[in-house]
C-alpha cells in the first residue's frame, strides 16, 4: 500500500514521518502522474489559497477530484479540510467541493488564537492531542456526513464515505492513532 502526500506547499514531511513510524510507504505527490500510483491521499496543512492555486496551475485539480469521487480515500488536515469542503462561509474560493460541509476559514482568528487541547474523537479510545494552527472549523454538515469530534461546540473532525477531514494537525504530535484510523479507511 502506498499513501500519497500532496506536496505542493505546507507541512507534508510531517505526514511522511508519521507514516514511516507506522511502516507505511508514502510518496510525495507533486503532479498528475503521481496520482496514478497511490492507494490513498493526505492533503496536509499549509495555506489553502497557496495549495489551491498550485493544484490549479499544475492542472491537478480535475484528476484529483475525479479520483476522490471514484472512491480514493483522502484525508485533509486543516488547509486540506478547506480544499475539500463544499462550502466556505467566509470565502468565495471553493476548491474541490467533495465533502458536504460548510467550513469557516481562520475560524479561531489569527495566530494568537492557535491552541492545543485533549479531546475525544469518535472511534478512537482516550482523548487525542489536537493542535489547531489558524485553524478552520465546520459550521454545518450534510446528512451523509458523520461528525467525529466536537470541541467547544464546534465540529473539528468529520467523515463522509472515503473522505476524512480534521481541523487539527495530528502530524504535529507523536500520536499515531489518527493516521491509524485513516489507514483503516483504505481497502
Amino acid at each position: 500500500m502506498i499513501v500519497g502526500i500532496l506536496a505542493l506547499q505546507g507541512a507534508f514531511i510531517e505526514h511522511v514521518n508519521i507514516l514511516k513510524n507506522l511502516n507505511i510507504n508514502s510518496i510525495l505527490v507533486k503532479n498528475k502522474e503521481d496520482l496514478e500510483n497511490i492507494n490513498a491521499l493526505i492533503i496536509p496543512g499549509g495555506e489553502s489559497t497557496s495549495i489551491g492555486k498550485l493544484l490549479d496551475v499544475f492542472h491537478m485539480k480535475s484528476s484529483l477530484e475525479k479520483k476522490i469521487s471514484q472512491g480514493l480515500p483522502v484525508w485533509g488536515t486543516c488547509a486540506g479540510m478547506i480544499l475539500l469542503a463544499k462550502k466556505i462561509s467566509n470565502d468565495e474560493r471553493i476548491h474541490m467541493p467533495l465533502i458536504d460541509i460548510t467550513v469557516v476559514r481562520n475560524g479561531y482568528g489569527r495566530q494568537l488564537g492557535s491552541f492545543c487541547i485533549y479531546e475525544k474523537i469518535k472511534g478512537i479510545n482516550k482523548p487525542f492531542p489536537m493542535v489547531f494552527i489558524r485553524a478552520p472549523y465546520i459550521e454545518q454538515v450534510g446528512k451523509n456526513v458523520e461528525v467525529l469530534a466536537i470541541v467547544n461546540g464546534k465540529i473539528v473532525a468529520a467523515k463522509q464515505n472515503n473522505i476524512l477531514v480534521t481541523s487539527f494537525h495530528p502530524e504535529l504530535t507523536d500520536d499515531l492513532r489518527m493516521h491509524q484510523y485513516f489507514l483503516t479507511m483504505i481497502q
Binding site: Q9, A11, I13, G45, E47, S50, A79, I117, I133
Partner: peptide, 19 residues
C-alpha cells in the same frame, strides 16, 4: 497543555515550501 512556543514553531512549519 498549551505551549505557545510549540504552536508558534508549528505555524512556521505550515509555511514550508512556500513564498
Amino acid at each position: 497543555m498549551e505551549n505557545r512556543y510549540d504552536l508558534n514553531k508549528n505555524l512556521a512549519q505550515m509555511l514550508k515550501g512556500g513564498v
